[in-house]
Amino acid sequence: MNLFGFFRARNTAPVARERLQILLAHERAIVGGSDLAAILREEILAVISKHVAIDQDKVQVKLDRGGSISTLEIDIEMPAFEGK
């Protein structure tokens, strides 16, 4: 092992620091945003169920927060219309 390799193997703290900064930025967004996703889910469901009977378990609300753009993905499985 040359001298450079020796130092590289030892200096692991900067790697730890960078991994933590990236991870925690991500985790804080998820934990902070989970309530918003839950609120949206409730309110959207309330509006739709006024008009259509839907199964609560067949609804998925996903909130993705990106750097410049965030997406809200709503997936609702509608029941088959009967008799029409």
């Binding site: 030892r10 200096n11 692991t12 703290a13 900067p14 730890a16 620091r17 933590l20 900064q21 925690l24």
Partner: peptide, 16 residues
């Protein structure tokens, strides 16, 4: 160990 770069420094943890 922190001085040798083997362990997170006080400042690192405080900043995070």
């Amino acid at each position: 160990r922190a001085a040798r770069g083997e362990m997170l420094k006080v400042e690192d943890v405080l900043e995070i």
